[in-house]
């Protein structure tokens, strides 16, 4: 069984790379969606609502299958996309929809005095969002966003269903050769668990940092 550990550990970088890439992309997209939801740009607003509704309203697995196996049949240029890219894209779109709502709520929660102070010194809307509102919203949204990141790390295991050999795929192959199914999947579970625990520690450190300004 111990022989399994290094083999499966070898796929940890791939898991972290997929999750990190999807997280960065999802954050960027979610902030854009959230800011749009706050300012409600005509027409765009309806599209954003539709986007959020669809990606929150359907299972991640279904979305991944739809994009990886389904869409290339109607849009042939998508056939060139490999499983890893498809998984990252799927995770990005799915989680961006959730994170957008979290970030929107955090933006709206920033005290009115902060918006007015930013306006009164002559900031443009972009400067106000970048310099004053988003940094303060980040503090409120951070715990929830880390939660989504945890979900995302675990979500990368679905890439297995797109034919990507990641931790699950590796475990499956090892188990099929040795019949050590319990051991193989136990190793996968423990590795995920350890990664998420590490992230929880990082979350605490992040929260202390973000709350620095608010200590009395």
């Amino acid at each position: 069984m111990l022989g399994l550990v290094p083999v499966i550990l070898g796929y940890v970088p791939l898991t972290l790379a997929m999750a990190s890439a999807a997280m960065v992309l999802a954050l960027v997209l979610a902030v854009a969606l959230a800011v749009e939801r706050v300012f409600r740009v005509p027409v765009l607003d309806q599209l954003v609502l539709l986007f959020i509704s669809f990606f929150r309203g359907t299972p991640l697995l279904v979305q991944l299958f739809l994009f990886y196996y389904g869409l290339p049949q109607v849009m042939s240029f998508l056939t060139a996309i490999d499983g890893v890219t498809a998984a990252i894209m799927g995770l990005t779109l799915h989680f961006a929809a959730y994170m957008a709502e979290t970030i929107r709520a955090a933006i709206i929660g920033v005290d009115r005095s902060q918006w007015e102070a930013a306006q009164s010194i002559g900031m443009t809307q972009g400067q106000m969002m970048r310099r004053v509102i988003l940094p303060q919203a980040a503090r409120v949204a951070a715990p929830t966003l880390v939660n989504y990141f945890i979900d995302m790390i675990k979500g990368t295991s679905l890439a297995f269903t797109l034919g990507v050999t990641e931790m699950m795929g590796a475990a499956q192959k090892e188990a099929a050769g040795s019949f050590l199914y319990f051991e193989a999947f136990l190793v996968v579970a423990v590795i995920y668990w350890i990664m998420v625990e590490g992230l929880s520690q990082a979350q605490r450190a992040l929260e202390i940092r973000l709350n620095k300004a608010y200590a009395r």
Binding site: D111, S113, Q114, E116, A117, A118, S120, I121, G122, V132, P135, Q136, R139, A213, Y214
Partner: peptide
């Protein structure tokens, strides 16, 4: 930008 405003509740940037 030609004016400056002092608020009743200070309106300092909290972060």
């Amino acid at each position: 930008r030609a004016t400056a405003f002092v608020f009743q509740n200070y309106g300092l940037f909290a972060h």
